[in-house]
Write a protein that binds this DNA or RNA. Structure first.
Lengths: 110, 110
DNA sequence: AGGCATACTTCATCAGGCGAAGTATCGCGT
DNA sequence: ACGCGATACTTCGCCTGATGAAGTATGCCT
Protein backbone atom coordinates (compact mmCIF):
# COMPACT_ATOMS: atom_id res chain seq x y z
CA UNK A 1 0.00 0.00 0.00
CA UNK A 2 2.71 2.49 0.88
CA UNK A 3 5.46 3.07 -1.66
CA UNK A 4 8.72 1.19 -1.32
CA UNK A 5 10.68 4.42 -1.12
CA UNK A 6 8.63 5.62 1.78
CA UNK A 7 9.29 2.40 3.66
CA UNK A 8 12.99 2.52 2.99
CA UNK A 9 14.01 4.50 5.97
CA UNK A 10 11.80 2.77 8.48
CA UNK A 11 11.71 -0.96 7.80
CA UNK A 12 14.50 -1.66 10.27
CA UNK A 13 12.89 0.41 12.98
CA UNK A 14 9.50 -1.20 12.45
CA UNK A 15 10.95 -4.69 12.67
CA UNK A 16 13.16 -3.86 15.63
CA UNK A 17 10.20 -2.36 17.45
CA UNK A 18 8.37 -5.68 17.08
CA UNK A 19 11.16 -7.32 19.06
CA UNK A 20 11.14 -4.92 21.97
CA UNK A 21 8.67 -6.95 23.97
CA UNK A 22 10.34 -10.31 23.54
CA UNK A 23 11.57 -12.91 21.05
CA UNK A 24 9.63 -13.48 17.85
CA UNK A 25 10.21 -15.40 14.65
CA UNK A 26 10.13 -13.83 11.19
CA UNK A 27 6.68 -14.80 10.07
CA UNK A 28 5.27 -13.69 13.41
CA UNK A 29 6.92 -10.29 13.10
CA UNK A 30 5.34 -9.81 9.70
CA UNK A 31 1.87 -10.68 10.92
CA UNK A 32 2.27 -8.58 14.04
CA UNK A 33 3.24 -5.46 12.13
CA UNK A 34 0.42 -5.93 9.67
CA UNK A 35 -1.94 -6.27 12.58
CA UNK A 36 -0.55 -3.28 14.47
CA UNK A 37 -0.98 -1.14 11.37
CA UNK A 38 -4.53 -2.40 10.80
CA UNK A 39 -3.42 -4.02 7.57
CA UNK A 40 -2.07 -0.80 6.12
CA UNK A 41 1.53 -1.94 6.23
CA UNK A 42 2.31 -4.84 3.93
CA UNK A 43 5.62 -6.57 4.49
CA UNK A 44 6.99 -8.62 1.61
CA UNK A 45 8.63 -11.82 2.75
CA UNK A 46 11.77 -11.08 0.78
CA UNK A 47 12.07 -7.72 2.48
CA UNK A 48 11.29 -9.07 5.91
CA UNK A 49 13.88 -11.81 5.89
CA UNK A 50 16.56 -9.80 4.15
CA UNK A 51 16.22 -7.11 6.82
CA UNK A 52 16.43 -9.74 9.56
CA UNK A 53 19.57 -11.31 8.05
CA UNK A 54 21.17 -7.90 7.62
CA UNK A 55 20.42 -6.88 11.19
CA UNK A 56 21.71 -10.14 12.58
CA UNK A 57 24.92 -9.75 10.59
CA UNK A 58 25.29 -6.32 12.12
CA UNK A 59 24.77 -7.72 15.59
CA UNK A 60 21.54 -5.87 16.33
CA UNK A 61 19.55 -9.05 16.77
CA UNK A 62 20.34 -12.69 17.53
CA UNK A 63 18.49 -15.62 15.99
CA UNK A 64 17.87 -18.97 17.66
CA UNK A 65 16.46 -21.95 15.79
CA UNK A 66 13.71 -23.86 17.54
CA UNK A 67 12.48 -27.21 16.30
CA UNK A 68 9.78 -29.00 18.23
CA UNK A 69 7.67 -32.03 17.51
CA UNK A 70 4.58 -31.18 15.52
CA UNK A 71 5.90 -27.72 14.69
CA UNK A 72 7.69 -26.17 11.76
CA UNK A 73 11.20 -24.96 12.31
CA UNK A 74 11.32 -21.33 13.28
CA UNK A 75 14.06 -18.84 13.97
CA UNK A 76 13.32 -16.67 16.98
CA UNK A 77 15.04 -13.32 17.09
CA UNK A 78 15.87 -11.26 20.15
CA UNK A 79 17.37 -7.80 20.44
CA UNK A 80 21.01 -7.58 21.49
CA UNK A 81 22.32 -4.82 23.74
CA UNK A 82 23.57 -3.11 20.60
CA UNK A 83 20.15 -3.61 19.06
CA UNK A 84 18.49 -1.80 21.93
CA UNK A 85 20.76 1.16 21.37
CA UNK A 86 19.99 1.10 17.66
CA UNK A 87 16.24 0.99 18.10
CA UNK A 88 16.37 3.89 20.54
CA UNK A 89 18.54 5.87 18.16
CA UNK A 90 16.39 5.06 15.14
CA UNK A 91 13.15 5.84 16.94
CA UNK A 92 14.49 9.21 17.94
CA UNK A 93 15.78 9.94 14.45
CA UNK A 94 12.50 8.88 12.87
CA UNK A 95 10.45 11.05 15.18
CA UNK A 96 12.67 14.07 14.57
CA UNK A 97 12.58 13.44 10.85
CA UNK A 98 8.84 12.95 10.55
CA UNK A 99 8.18 16.01 12.68
CA UNK A 100 10.55 18.03 10.51
CA UNK A 101 8.95 16.88 7.25
CA UNK A 102 5.46 17.46 8.53
CA UNK A 103 6.44 20.94 9.54
CA UNK A 104 8.22 21.78 6.29
CA UNK A 105 5.45 20.49 4.02
CA UNK A 106 2.79 22.01 6.27
CA UNK A 107 0.36 24.47 4.79
CA UNK A 108 1.30 27.84 6.18
CA UNK A 109 4.42 29.31 4.70
CA UNK A 110 2.82 32.64 3.96
CA UNK B 1 21.99 15.03 9.12
CA UNK B 2 19.17 12.60 8.42
CA UNK B 3 20.04 9.33 6.73
CA UNK B 4 19.66 9.05 2.98
CA UNK B 5 17.24 6.17 3.35
CA UNK B 6 14.97 8.21 5.54
CA UNK B 7 14.90 11.00 2.98
CA UNK B 8 14.21 8.63 0.13
CA UNK B 9 10.48 8.68 0.30
CA UNK B 10 10.06 12.37 0.89
CA UNK B 11 12.53 14.33 -1.21
CA UNK B 12 10.03 14.81 -4.02
CA UNK B 13 7.32 15.96 -1.68
CA UNK B 14 9.63 18.37 0.11
CA UNK B 15 10.76 19.93 -3.14
CA UNK B 16 7.26 20.04 -4.60
CA UNK B 17 5.99 21.72 -1.46
CA UNK B 18 8.55 24.49 -1.96
CA UNK B 19 6.92 25.26 -5.30
CA UNK B 20 3.38 25.51 -4.03
CA UNK B 21 3.58 29.22 -3.42
CA UNK B 22 5.10 30.17 -6.74
CA UNK B 23 8.03 29.67 -9.11
CA UNK B 24 11.48 29.12 -7.71
CA UNK B 25 14.83 28.10 -9.09
CA UNK B 26 16.83 25.13 -7.89
CA UNK B 27 19.31 26.83 -5.64
CA UNK B 28 16.53 28.85 -4.06
CA UNK B 29 14.54 25.70 -3.32
CA UNK B 30 17.52 24.20 -1.56
CA UNK B 31 18.09 27.25 0.60
CA UNK B 32 14.39 27.58 1.35
CA UNK B 33 14.05 24.00 2.57
CA UNK B 34 17.15 24.30 4.68
CA UNK B 35 15.73 27.44 6.19
CA UNK B 36 12.26 25.99 6.75
CA UNK B 37 13.79 23.04 8.57
CA UNK B 38 16.01 25.28 10.69
CA UNK B 39 19.06 23.79 9.02
CA UNK B 40 18.17 20.25 9.97
CA UNK B 41 17.53 19.18 6.41
CA UNK B 42 20.61 19.19 4.21
CA UNK B 43 19.98 18.92 0.49
CA UNK B 44 22.89 17.82 -1.66
CA UNK B 45 23.07 19.65 -4.94
CA UNK B 46 23.28 16.42 -6.88
CA UNK B 47 20.11 15.19 -5.19
CA UNK B 48 18.29 18.46 -5.61
CA UNK B 49 18.87 18.81 -9.32
CA UNK B 50 18.39 15.15 -10.14
CA UNK B 51 15.01 15.24 -8.42
CA UNK B 52 14.09 18.39 -10.34
CA UNK B 53 15.08 16.88 -13.69
CA UNK B 54 13.20 13.70 -12.89
CA UNK B 55 10.05 15.56 -11.92
CA UNK B 56 10.18 17.75 -14.99
CA UNK B 57 10.57 14.67 -17.21
CA UNK B 58 7.48 13.28 -15.52
CA UNK B 59 5.59 16.46 -16.16
CA UNK B 60 5.07 17.41 -12.54
CA UNK B 61 6.96 20.68 -12.89
CA UNK B 62 7.96 22.95 -15.75
CA UNK B 63 11.26 24.79 -15.92
CA UNK B 64 11.80 28.14 -17.56
CA UNK B 65 15.25 29.64 -18.11
CA UNK B 66 15.70 33.25 -17.18
CA UNK B 67 18.79 35.22 -18.13
CA UNK B 68 19.04 38.84 -17.20
CA UNK B 69 21.81 41.37 -17.30
CA UNK B 70 23.93 41.25 -14.20
CA UNK B 71 22.41 37.95 -13.09
CA UNK B 72 23.39 34.33 -13.39
CA UNK B 73 21.20 32.12 -15.52
CA UNK B 74 18.57 30.39 -13.49
CA UNK B 75 15.89 27.85 -14.21
CA UNK B 76 12.63 28.69 -12.51
CA UNK B 77 10.29 25.79 -11.88
CA UNK B 78 6.54 25.92 -11.50
CA UNK B 79 4.09 23.19 -10.64
CA UNK B 80 1.99 21.82 -13.48
CA UNK B 81 -1.63 20.78 -13.00
CA UNK B 82 -0.39 17.22 -12.80
CA UNK B 83 2.18 18.34 -10.25
CA UNK B 84 -0.51 19.80 -8.04
CA UNK B 85 -2.29 16.47 -8.04
CA UNK B 86 0.95 14.69 -7.23
CA UNK B 87 1.84 16.94 -4.33
CA UNK B 88 -1.62 16.54 -2.84
CA UNK B 89 -1.41 12.78 -3.25
CA UNK B 90 2.11 12.57 -1.82
CA UNK B 91 1.31 14.81 1.11
CA UNK B 92 -1.64 12.64 2.01
CA UNK B 93 0.36 9.45 1.62
CA UNK B 94 3.21 10.85 3.70
CA UNK B 95 0.91 11.92 6.49
CA UNK B 96 -0.83 8.56 6.57
CA UNK B 97 2.49 6.78 6.49
CA UNK B 98 4.16 8.81 9.20
CA UNK B 99 1.12 8.51 11.44
CA UNK B 100 1.07 4.75 10.88
CA UNK B 101 4.76 4.35 11.66
CA UNK B 102 4.56 6.52 14.74
CA UNK B 103 1.68 4.46 15.97
CA UNK B 104 3.29 1.10 15.23
CA UNK B 105 6.63 1.96 16.81
CA UNK B 106 4.91 3.71 19.70
CA UNK B 107 5.62 2.59 23.20
CA UNK B 108 2.53 0.81 24.41
CA UNK B 109 1.91 -2.56 22.85
CA UNK B 110 1.24 -4.27 26.14
C1' DA C 1 43.41 39.62 -8.11
C1' DG C 2 41.57 36.33 -4.87
C1' DG C 3 37.95 34.20 -2.60
C1' DC C 4 33.40 33.10 -1.59
C1' DA C 5 28.53 32.60 -2.72
C1' DT C 6 25.59 31.72 -6.42
C1' DA C 7 23.81 28.40 -9.93
C1' DC C 8 23.77 24.39 -12.48
C1' DT C 9 25.60 19.69 -14.79
C1' DT C 10 27.01 14.95 -15.21
C1' DC C 11 28.17 10.48 -13.81
C1' DA C 12 29.30 6.33 -11.35
C1' DT C 13 28.33 4.04 -7.03
C1' DC C 14 25.70 1.81 -3.55
C1' DA C 15 22.06 0.20 -0.55
C1' DG C 16 17.62 -1.43 0.16
C1' DG C 17 12.82 -2.91 -1.02
C1' DC C 18 10.71 -6.06 -4.08
C1' DG C 19 9.14 -9.75 -7.43
C1' DA C 20 9.66 -14.30 -8.52
C1' DA C 21 10.52 -18.82 -7.78
C1' DG C 22 11.49 -22.41 -4.76
C1' DT C 23 11.50 -25.69 -0.48
C1' DA C 24 9.01 -27.89 3.18
C1' DT C 25 5.60 -28.92 6.79
C1' DC C 26 1.09 -28.85 9.06
C1' DG C 27 -3.96 -28.93 9.48
C1' DC C 28 -8.47 -29.09 7.53
C1' DG C 29 -12.27 -30.34 4.58
C1' DT C 30 -14.11 -33.71 1.51
C1' DA D 1 -6.17 -40.44 0.69
C1' DC D 2 -5.81 -36.09 -1.54
C1' DG D 3 -5.70 -31.31 -2.45
C1' DC D 4 -5.26 -26.87 -0.77
C1' DG D 5 -4.21 -23.02 1.92
C1' DA D 6 -1.57 -21.27 5.74
C1' DT D 7 2.78 -21.43 7.91
C1' DA D 8 7.88 -20.63 7.64
C1' DC D 9 11.98 -19.67 5.44
C1' DT D 10 15.64 -19.04 1.34
C1' DT D 11 17.92 -17.05 -2.62
C1' DC D 12 18.69 -14.05 -6.39
C1' DG D 13 18.56 -10.43 -9.62
C1' DC D 14 16.36 -5.94 -10.73
C1' DC D 15 15.43 -1.12 -10.21
C1' DT D 16 15.19 3.27 -8.10
C1' DG D 17 16.89 7.17 -5.88
C1' DA D 18 20.27 9.68 -2.76
C1' DT D 19 25.00 10.71 -2.85
C1' DG D 20 30.05 12.08 -3.68
C1' DA D 21 33.04 13.94 -6.67
C1' DA D 22 34.43 16.73 -10.11
C1' DG D 23 33.51 20.31 -13.15
C1' DT D 24 31.72 24.89 -15.37
C1' DA D 25 30.68 29.63 -14.96
C1' DT D 26 29.40 34.17 -13.08
C1' DG D 27 28.65 37.97 -9.76
C1' DC D 28 30.16 40.51 -5.65
C1' DC D 29 33.19 42.19 -2.11
C1' DT D 30 37.68 43.56 -0.48
Amino acid sequence: MFSADLKRGSMELLILSALEDGARHGYEIGKLLEHRSDGRLELRVSTLYSVLYRMEKRGWIKGRWVERQGERRRCYYTLTARGRQVVARQRQEWQAFSAMVNRVIGVSHA
